[in-house]
Design a protein around this nucleic acid. Structure first.
Length: 398
DNA sequence: AAAACGGGGGG
DNA sequence: CCCCCAGTTTT
């Protein structure tokens, strides 16, 4: 009896949700057509990112890279610049790697083949299902956070959705709900319901097309589900950065550098800065010096910057403090205005020969080539910076 | 299985 | 302000 009841609840759910979606679906830029490339780009952008945030990025990106081939052939820095501010920058690099793979292996055509799609860089289980169902109408589940929330509530599932095993179970369930011939619309309907109606907090049950048979709602438990263990708080890190102004040919410019190939904010540009070791955090615990002195932090900055980068700088005064929270790290940054005193070590030779040119200095740091460059406000239009440094530099040049 | 990986929105 | 959101890759 239970199984029969559940089967009817499933059929009801699929039918009502699909009908609802076809009536109210939003007119979004990636729903213009079913071009697999357009679907692919949208799904990558929509990972960890809300629809309203993605729309302007998507329009710009598709305008600049309209086809798989255009993306594959673009210089990587241009792709990164187009992604600037969206976060999780490896998504952009993986997307381009995937595009190059599609050009080389599949002649520039996204293959209508689950295993081939799943093998592309940056495409995991969710995105595979999204592309296969939306672009090719294949009956594959596409389980994102919205779907886990909706199904946890409708079927009153109490498994912890933070656990990978739970997602696998919900994928099986979601796959069994797909109506014949309507995979794309149904999967989008599930996500649309999660985004518009079955929201994380305070779901709007009254307009919900499947409220009548929603088990969580019937039990009055819709706000208790889904069950999810919460993440650890980000670890705090204190950092000191310098806005180093140039002289002579570099008058009016400041020194920035490019981050390493991999890791946090890979290949993004930034102000030179240093991690303050835990045992020395008292240096930046006090309120900033607003009287023009740079005191202890300035001296520590001078010494450590020379040790780590070979740049000999002279901090002049405190400029601002800035906080930036990542999912796993919390940067508390103190920023000083500084002059370039002189160059020492490996940086001296590199910078000495090119000081008149755009490039200021290159030096060896832990075996990796770090590029330094003098830039003016106009260079912000071509180099990709994380939001933290965009805020700081906008403030500086205002 | 857990950690790394950004940024934005809502209460 | 604090809390919440959440796919893929790497470890």
């Amino acid at each position: 009896m239970e199984a029969i009841y559940k089967e009817e609840a499933k059929v009801y759910f699929s039918r009502e949700l699909l009908t609802w979606y076809r009536r109210i679906k939003r007119d979004l830029p990636w729903r213009m057509n079913q071009d697999p490339y357009r679907v692919w780009v949208s799904e990558i952008m929509l990972q960890q990112t809300r629809v309203d945030t993605v729309i302007p990025y998507y329009e710009r990106f598709m305008n600049k890279f309209p086809t798989v081939r255009a993306l594959a052939e673009a210089p990587e820095p241009e792709v990164l610049k187009c992604w600037e501010g969206l976060g999780y920058y490896s998504r952009a690099r993986n997307l381009q790697a995937g595009a190059r793979e599609v050009v080389e292996r599949y002649g520039g055509v996204v293959p209508d083949d689950k295993a081939a799609v799943a093998g592309l860089k940056g495409v995991g289980p969710y995105t595979t299902g999204a592309i296969m169902s939306i672009a090719f109408n294949r009956p594959e589940p596409a389980v994102d956070g919205n779907v886990m929330r909706v199904l946890s509530r409708y079927f009153c599932l109490e498994d912890d959705i933070a656990k990978p095993a739970t997602r696998v179970g919900i994928e099986k369930l979601a796959g069994s709900l797909i109506p014949e011939g309507a995979a794309g619309d149904f999967n989008q309907a599930l996500m649309e319901l999660g985004a518009l109606v079955c929201t994380p907090k305070a779901p709007s049950c009254l307009p919900c097309p499947v409220m009548e048979h929603c088990e969580a709602r019937l039990a009055g438990r819709e706000t208790e589900l889904p069950i999810k263990t919460k993440a650890k708080p980000p670890r705090p890190e204190k950092r000191v950065a310098a806005i180093i102004s140039g002289t002579g040919a570099n008058e009016g410019k400041i020194l920035v550098r490019q981050r390493p190939e991999t890791g946090l904010l890979a290949q993004m540009w930034e102000l030179p800065h240093l991690l303050v070791p835990k045992e020395q955090e008292k240096i930046v615990d006090a309120a900033p010096e607003t009287d023009g002195s740079t005191a202890a932090a300035g001296e520590w900055l001078t010494r450590s910057m020379e040790e780590e980068t070979g740049l000999l700088i002279r901090p002049e005064r405190w400029f601002m403090d800035a906080d930036h929270v990542f999912s796993h790290i919390h940067w508390k940054m103190r920023i000083y205005l500084a002059d370039l005193g002189a160059l020492a070590g490996a940086a001296a030779a590199a910078a000495g020969s090119s000081l008149a040119a755009e490039t200021a200095a290159a030096y060896e740091a832990g075996g990796k080539q770090i590029e330094y460059r003098w830039i003016g406000p106009e260079d912000m239009d071509t180099l990709a910076f994380p939001n933290l440094f965009i805020r700081i530099l906008r403030e500086y040049w205002t």
